[in-house]
Design a binder for these strands. Structure first.
Lengths: 234, 234
DNA sequence: GCAGCAGATATAACAATGTTATAAACAAGC
DNA sequence: GCTTGTTTATAACATTGTTATATCTGCTGC
């Protein structure tokens, strides 16, 4: 693969290769626990290098897990982009919800990492961050991965299923907070089995949708679900 | 305070005193970060003892944070029990939601700890725990602290506000998952300010309620909220 | 009231962690 | 071909949870 390469970026390539090698190994270690289960020494040994490469590539362990979070969001973007764009906005939105859940289930460690910013802040940290605007979690719904969610909700508003006096952002934040709570509980092993988890997800996700919808939208949703014999493909 | 005490339980008292002293100091350290910000050495120094007392009192650091989680649930029980028991079940349920949020806000470190079991499990751990029945998080809604939530929901069902074909447990889990997601995001600093957070909480909590309610319940809720000029005291 | 013993505590040692200092290896440029 | 700047490897450092050992305390039986 590196037979006749321009010597210009051969070092860049090697650097990037080791970067991804480190990320791959780290994500593998991540599956077996939280970010504290990643030992730089074991990680370096796995890749066949020394701990210093983590510092040159990521600036330290914090940079490494930040890169892992980026990777998680990249995967989420792909997962949501791959959700079939149903021509019925309400079904599209439902599919986005289940797509989000499936992403969380298939990338448990990543999901836990992405949402692990849920740590409380000390008074000083809060003072240093008035408005919290710089916090990574603050940017979650501003992340490109959520663009498609906003698009679906706008389409729902346009067809009159959601009231026009609610902003798409407000609706998306409601939806996102709800499915995040559901996924968070499911990943915590809260439900007996996957059937229970899926049932709770379907019930609650539809509930928050219905609770925000207009009468017209409710009628439409009922018609759509009645048409499909499998109303909730979660 | 220890002038003429029965020598029988004077040691028990001292032991318990040191236990609570350790817990207090630990919870104080907990506010400044996650459970990893608790150093046994610094904790022991703060209390004026050695690290060994943590081992005799709690069996180690894991036992200490487990005791902290217990303390958190105890506080949650108190907070929910103190919620005014409105004679209108729907308003009572709403008050329980806001009470839960206030508990989360006033005990951020405890709340993060209580819900930090959201860590993914390795394949072996899953195998050792078929059904996850032993996981602490699994027992959350079975905890006495949530009894009052079930009571409120049962009252709502009895008056016909929630459909009778939904189990109180299913409804409570929907409600709890939603407000947990909301609190989780708020504690992560997701919202610009407290007004935004409260607005999102009110909107979403009512949405999931409405989405589960019967037409009769919806009419009743609208009437109740119209009567009160302050419909959402979150 | 005193000997003896069980449990708690303090000290120190151990293994493992992230990070930093230092030195060697290496690639790039003139 | 040498110099320079970067990357890597080794080792040292500080800190963590935990365990071993030894001292000490406080209760118990006589």
């Amino acid at each position: 693969m590196c037979s006749a390469e321009r010597p210009d970026n051969v070092t860049d390539k090697r650097r990037s290769a080791q970067r991804t090698a480190l990320l791959d190994a780290a994500s593998e270690m991540l599956v077996h626990g939280g970010h504290e289960s990643i030992s730089l020494r074991k990680l370096a040994a796995k890749v066949g290098t020394s701990t210093m490469s983590v510092y040159t590539a990521f600036g330290g362990k914090d940079g490494l897990i930040e890169a892992l979070i980026d990777e998680g969001f990249k995967r989420l973007s792909i997962a949501l982009a791959e959700v079939p764009r149903n021509k019925e906005p309400l079904l599209w939105l439902r599919n986005l919800g289940t797509g989000f859940r499936h992403f969380a289930l298939e990338n448990q460690a990543y999901y836990a990492l992405m949402t692990s910013v849920t740590m409380p802040l000390s008074a000083e940290e809060r003072h240093d961050n008035p408005g919290y605007s710089d916090l990574p979690s603050r940017a979650i719904t501003r992340h490109p991965a959520y663009r498609v969610l906003l698009d679906a909700i706008k389409a729902c508003i346009d067809e009159g299923s959601f009231p026009a006096n609610l902003s798409p952002i407000a609706i998306s934040e409601s939806f996102w907070a709800t499915i995040h709570g559901l996924c968070s509980l499911e990943l915590a092993g809260f439900y007996k089995n996957e059937n229970d988890a899926r049932a709770a997800f379907t019930l609650t996700a539809f509930a928050v949708m219905r609770g925000l919808m207009t009468p017209k939208g409710l009628a439409k949703l009922d018609a759509l679900l009645a048409a499909n014999t499998t109303p909730a493909v979660a």
